[in-house]
Design a protein around this nucleic acid. Structure first.
Ligand SMILES: [Mn+2]
Ligand SMILES: [Mn+2]
Ligand SMILES: [Mn+2]
Ligand SMILES: [Mn+2]
Lengths: 156, 156
DNA sequence: TATATATGTTAGCATCGGCTAACTTTTGAG
DNA sequence: CTCAAAAGTTAGCCGATGCTAACATATATA
């Protein structure tokens, strides 16, 4: 709909452009969902390595709230994607590419949490909301968040 | 891990509580993903009814950026869930329950967009980011967003 | 009104990310 | 050093949400 045949070519009106922009928005969200698993895993693996020296499936499963077989399957996907390295029955480590992604995710997570806290949100809620929001924040928005956090800190 | 047997009962340490809270956060995100399709559809259906008087699969597909068979399938899920009513080959309408959900989603969407705009984000980016963020914003955070928007408006 | 085009549905396929049950390997307590 | 418990894997299942190809229905133009 909203398409007419004029002189044999397609014509667009204002609501057509709107529809296209909207579709791109939804496509962006679907894309974000595709990277979400990888992002949460590498971020968590980096945290566990920092805390415990290594990331083991049992700990990943506990912190994600999923069962061990789910972790095994997803880790093999991450290995396939070149983000983690590991040998069977051994702990999981990040490849250089995985480390880079983990760093970016941790930064984003930190900024989103700090931003929500600066709005007066309680820690529990800030962490919960950030865990989902982080995957849908563009670099533009992230920088705006960062600016707010910085200003809030300067004011004490 | 991080569980010891003491006097025959389980003992928790600080990192255990942390792990549990983290798992709840991820569980919350997984739950949000379960309602996401329904939320985006009813919101869009409400918009189309407002603009065009009815919501047809072809328009829903165009605006979501998916193919018509995907819409057919998802609409039948929404019907199953009691959110929409429709007869074969006819336009789609919202049940009272669907209208209520749509209203809540539109409010949330509006607030998130207005909030991002008030931060100086451009419209295109605000809409894109909001489309994903909206599903992960608790009522607590939404109210904080609303307060910021209101204050920004008062200052002109 | 006849029929061509646009719209909608069905069937069948794929991937993702959950799960349980059953099995294997590693670890560590005695 | 042995062997039971803990950890990890595999196989097989499921539902959600995309897709294409083929078919059915509705609509609008000639
Ligand atoms: Mn996350
Ligand atoms: Mn995170
Ligand atoms: Mn959305
Ligand atoms: Mn929306």
């Amino acid at each position: 709909m909203t398409k007419l045949q004029i002189h044999g070519r397609e014509a667009s009106d204002a609501s057509d452009r709107d529809a296209k922009a909207q579709a791109e928005g939804f496509a962006t969200v679907r894309q974000a969902h595709e990277s979400e698993m990888a992002e949460d895993y590498v971020e968590l693996i980096a945290e566990l390595i920092e805390i415990q020296g290594e990331a083991r499936p049992v700990d990943i499963a506990e912190r994600l709230g999923v069962k061990p077989p789910t972790v095994t399957k997803n880790i093999s996907r991450l290995k396939e994607a070149g983000l983690v390295s590991r040998e069977r029955y051994r702990a999981i480590f990040l490849t250089p590419e995985g480390q880079k992604l983990a760093e970016a995710c941790r930064r984003r997570h930190r900024i989103v949490v700090a931003f929500l806290l600066s709005l007066g949100i309680d820690e529990e809620t800030a962490e919960r909301d950030a865990e989902g929001i982080e995957h849908h924040v563009s670099e533009t928005t992230l920088e705006a968040f960062e600016a707010v956090v910085t200003r809030a800190h300067e004011k004490h």
